[in-house]
Amino acid sequence: MIQETIEAKLHQAFQPEHLQVLNESYMHNVPAGSESHFKVVIVSPSFDGRRLIERHRAVNQVLADELAGQVHALSIHTYTPEQWQQDFQAPESPMCHGGSHENN
């Protein structure tokens, strides 16, 4: 499964204190069971002192093979542990045209 591969690669690269990899493909106009749209919420001390664009580039680099293949979209939410203590959750993803609120 692509989701498991993403989780493993992010754990190895960032040793996160918190990691969520959510398959949001059901929210898009794709066949049931697709693994094409993901949301990543990652909290890691390795993000300390790094600008948001640097954090996102680092995640994209780790997942370059997946992004070049079956993953069509990746929503990335990166936090330092201190930021996560203040926010405790990433923003909700919007529905896309043709998507469904129900998990298929």
Rank of each mutant, 00 (worst) to 15 (best):
E35A: 11
N23F: 10
S44Q: 04
S100T: 11
L74V: 05
G49H: 10
I6G: 02
I6W: 01
H72N: 07
F88D: 08
G33F: 10
D48K: 13
C96P: 00
H77K: 11
P45W: 04
A64P: 00
A73Y: 03
E54R: 12
F14K: 01
E92F: 05
F14W: 04
S75D: 13
S34D: 09
M1R: 09
H18C: 08
Q86T: 11
E102V: 15
P94H: 11
Q83P: 11
S100E: 09
V40I: 15
S44M: 02
N29P: 01
I6Q: 03
S93E: 14
R50N: 12
A58P: 02
A13D: 07
F47N: 03
H97L: 14
N104E: 11
S100M: 09
L67G: 08
T78K: 01
M1T: 14
L22I: 14
G33L: 13
N29C: 08
I2S: 05
S25Q: 08
V62Q: 03
F38L: 05
G69S: 14
V41E: 08
E66C: 01
H11G: 00
C96G: 05
V41Y: 04
E24Q: 15
E17P: 00
H77R: 05
I2P: 13
S93A: 14
A58H: 05
A68F: 00
A68L: 04
Q86P: 00
N29T: 05
V71I: 12
H37N: 13
A90E: 12
Q86Y: 00
T78L: 03
R51Q: 06
Q70M: 05
G99M: 08
R55F: 01
M1V: 09
I42H: 01
G69C: 07
D87S: 12
V41L: 06
T78Q: 00
L52F: 03
C96I: 00
V71F: 02
M27Y: 04
V43E: 10
L52W: 01
L22V: 15
A8K: 15
F88K: 14
F38G: 06
Q70P: 07
Q15V: 10
C96T: 07
I2G: 00
